[in-house]
């Protein structure tokens, strides 16, 4: 199963390595990790997505809570949250498939950030699944480089 954790942490050095180290040494998986400051400079917010069985997900929550630099842990359900991911991607094109690629961008809402002689640099954001789907669609053109932010999430209620 998938676990989405929204974690508030102290914004100081060593905290990120402490949290990621906790995953590493207990054999938990980090699928994505996104970190940024909150409106309070002393506090950062992390969204961590992990997969594992129920016991593992429960343990992750407990171990996160145990970490002294962790202020608050919330476990989000996909249904009750907004989950978003952003991606930058360079896609190769040639004369024959250029227009179909541009058409694909129009349909999916991907933004063309740069038109280069041999590639388009696209920005796309959406629910994590739709990012995956979009990547699949781009494969036939040839993906040169990809950068993803990882999931960020927030409860709707």
């Amino acid at each position: 199963m998938k676990g989405i954790f929204s974690v508030l942490v102290e914004n100081k050095d060593g905290v990120l390595s402490g949290v990621s180290g906790l995953f590493a040494r207990r054999g938990f998986n980090i699928d994505t990790l996104a970190v940024g400051e909150t409106d309070n400079h002393e506090i950062s917010s992390m969204t961590i997505v992990s997969t594992g069985d129920q016991r593992t997900i429960d343990q992750i929550e407990k171990q996160l809570n145990k970490n002294i630099d962790v202020i608050k842990v919330r476990r989000l359900s996909e249904a009750k949250s907004v989950c978003l991911e952003m991606m930058l991607v360079k896609v190769a094109y040639n004369a024959s498939n250029r227009s179909s690629l541009i058409e694909l961008c129009q349909i999916t809402g991907a933004k063309i950030m740069k038109v280069a002689p041999k590639f388009l640099l696209l920005e796309y954001h959406g629910e994590p699944e739709s990012v995956e789907d979009f990547i699949q669609l781009l494969r036939s053109y040839g993906i040169q480089e990809i950068q993803r932010t990882g999931t960020i999430a927030m409860e709707k209620v």
């Binding site: 016991r55 407990k62 145990k66």
Partner: peptide
């Protein structure tokens, strides 16, 4: 005393 021990 350690919540994380529960169910570990």
């Amino acid at each position: 005393i350690d919540t994380a021990e529960i169910g570990k």
